[in-house]
Simulated assay, not measured.
Amino acid sequence: MTKVFKRIYTYKFLLPAAIVYIVIFIVPTVMSFFFSLTRWTLQDWDFIGLQNFRTFFEEPSLTIGFKNTLIYAAVTSSMKVVFGLLLGVFLTGKIRTKSYLRSVVFFPTLVSTIAVGIAFSMMMHPTMGLLNQALAQLGIEGPDWLGDTRIALLSVAFVDIWKGVGLATVIFIAGIMAIPEEYHEALQIDGGNAWNKFWNIIVPLSRPATNAVIILSFIGGLRSFDLIWSMTKGGPGFATDVIASIIYKQYQGGFYGLATAGNVILFLFVTAIVYPLSRYLTRTEVDL
């Protein structure tokens, strides 16, 4: 009887969180799967089966959207890992202003994504932008950062990296500081240098932090929309179109059922990539 009472008592604490999770996540997810099989408006709906999915896969820019989504996610997540790790190592070293520098590095994460997109789209203007004006002072003709189909996606990815590397750095700082001091002392006894410390201690033993940054950044990259839309709206042409921007264009056109089907496809696409990746990365972690 006592065990039953303790179990019920425990579930009472879990109940509020479970209700919030069901209302905010489970119910909208189930409704999305259902309405993806319908042609719906705000007033009524008609069940049409898998027609929305067939129509969505016939979208002319879908192939480009999938390719751009994967490129964008791979570039942003890999660069956040590299720069986040390097900044994490630097900001856990013996520097006098590291608390201030940590705040500076993290600050872009707090700024609105739309505001960042608008600001950088002006900075990257081909003639009046700050970047090209600075390059002109050095005698270099700057490119059309957001108007050239060859570099537009990478230009937006650069802004994403600048904005998101602060969070990656904080995660790496926590991971590096969690490494037991005994490893550093053993390295000093063996006469190891800074490179040995980085490669043989920090890199392998901060693997949980690395995995967290990879997963979070990759999910964010696969689902990215607001920064891309505020800077290029998917242009020029389809050069920066990703799956999320294609879905949004369907919503703009009033094809709500089609757009909902696209959201379901995006959800399954992200899950199919991230779940096995997460399982693989977890198996490679080193126990401290």
Rank of each mutant, 00 (worst) to 15 (best):
K67A: 14
S206M: 09
T113V: 14
T76S: 07
V286L: 11
I19T: 10
I71C: 08
V4S: 12
E141N: 12
I228V: 11
F53M: 10
D241M: 11
T69R: 07
W45D: 01
W199R: 15
I228N: 04
G237I: 06
T76G: 00
M123L: 12
F106K: 08
A239D: 08
F255L: 11
T284H: 12
Y275G: 03
Y72A: 05
F120I: 04
F267G: 01
F238E: 14
V82R: 02
L15E: 05
V23F: 14
Q250P: 00
I8P: 05
I171C: 02
L70C: 10
I171M: 06
F225K: 06
T149R: 11
A18I: 14
S206R: 00
R102V: 03
G237K: 06
I179F: 08
V165P: 00
L42Y: 13
P126C: 12
S32I: 11
E59H: 14
P276Y: 10
F267L: 15
A244S: 15
P28I: 04
P108C: 09
K249G: 13
V4K: 13
W229L: 02
N211G: 10
V111R: 05
W45R: 10
P108F: 04
R283H: 13
T97V: 15
R150P: 05
W162R: 02
Y251V: 14
F35E: 03
L91W: 00
N52T: 03
A212T: 15
L14F: 13
